[in-house]
Write a protein that binds this DNA or RNA. Structure first.
Length: 298
DNA sequence: GAATCGTGGGG
DNA sequence: TCCCCAAGATT
């Protein structure tokens, strides 16, 4: 039995019942789930995914609405640029792929917001192709079980893809099962802190365990502070704009943060990212939310 | 390659 | 409280 075999057996009995894993899920549904899941826990994604798919069942449906609607629907999922890129993605698929999610990996990777992980995840989980799908879970599992190290590096490398590729069964459908199984194992059992090794199918063969489960040496990651950062200010500004039903005067944005310099920088960043659109010098809306007929008041 | 980009929950 | 972490992508 290989690691992949054991992982698949475990997965069959322990996999979560997630909506985007239903057999009738479209490639678009898979893509939406993968983008939403970038750096975001499953429990928070699930309701957003359901709402999103109900409102925009196909890429063409989303492309027909302005980005502002996507940003609103995104709510507080975090990293709202993902909503904008998903919208841009939908537009690109309508323009270049007849409204379909492409199955070719290079075409997937050319889409906005689709990188090494997401492109391979869609090609694999939506189209059943054989690619190494490497996310933070997979890297941790491989790092421990195969390499005997307590954790993986902070970023996915070409070597990580090669390492996972070597573990994949030959048959594409089974390779896809192996990838999702490794991911699920990392998410539920081989977790970052306090792994549940006694529930792990690799318990007897895990190189890290056989090494005595050594702890991490130094501080593995950089501190990830949030309070007081531009990110927090951007979040506060966007929160106001999301709930606005009319163009927002600068004065209302001034109320959410008292540091003028930082507030201005954060707002400029949102504009530069294309999330926010200035409507004149002192009025702002979400991208594409400009009224078709400018009010007299402006 | 490092920095940046949200938000919320658990230990 | 604070710190860590969560299916990454982009510049």
């Amino acid at each position: 039995m290989t690691l992949a075999d054991d992982a698949i057996t475990w997965f069959v009995q322990n996999a979560r019942d997630l909506p985007w894993r239903q057999p009738d899920t479209t490639a678009w549904g898979v893509l939406v789930s993968e983008v939403m899941l970038q750096q975001t826990p499953v429990v928070r994604v699930e309701p957003h995914w359901r709402s999103w798919m109900t409102r925009w069942p196909t890429p063409a449906d989303l492309a027909a609405d302005p980005p502002a609607e996507a940003i609103r629907m995104w709510g507080r999922l975090g990293y709202p640029r993902r909503a904008m890129r998903l919208h841009a993605c939908a537009v690109a698929m309508v323009e270049r792929h007849d409204g379909q999610v492409p199955s070719d990996l290079d075409q997937l990777l050319a889409l906005p917001g689709v990188g090494t992980y997401t492109g391979r995840a869609v090609a694999t989980f939506a189209y059943g192709q054989r690619h190494p799908v490497v996310d933070t879970n997979v890297r941790r599992v491989v790092s421990r079980a195969v390499e005997g190290k307590p954790d993986a590096g902070p970023n996915t490398t070409a070597a990580d893809l090669v390492a996972m590729a070597e573990l994949l069964p030959d048959e594409p459908a089974r390779a896809a099962r192996a990838s999702i199984a490794f991911m699920e194992l990392g998410a539920l059992v081989c977790v970052a802190r306090s792994p549940r090794c006694h529930e792990c199918p690799f318990e007897e063969v895990c190189a890290w365990r056989l090494n005595g489960s050594p702890a991490l040496e130094g501080p593995s990651r950089k501190p990830q502070r949030y309070a007081g950062t531009d990110r927090q200010v951007r979040g506060l500004l966007l929160e106001v704009l999301r709930h606005a039903t009319a163009p927002v005067p600068r004065q209302r944005l001034d109320e959410v943060w008292n540091d003028d310099v930082q507030r201005a920088r954060a707002l400029a960043g949102l504009v530069e990212d294309g999330l926010v659109e200035p409507l004149g010098a002192d009025v702002f809306v979400l991208a594409g939310d400009a009224p078709r007929v400018p009010p007299q008041a402006l």
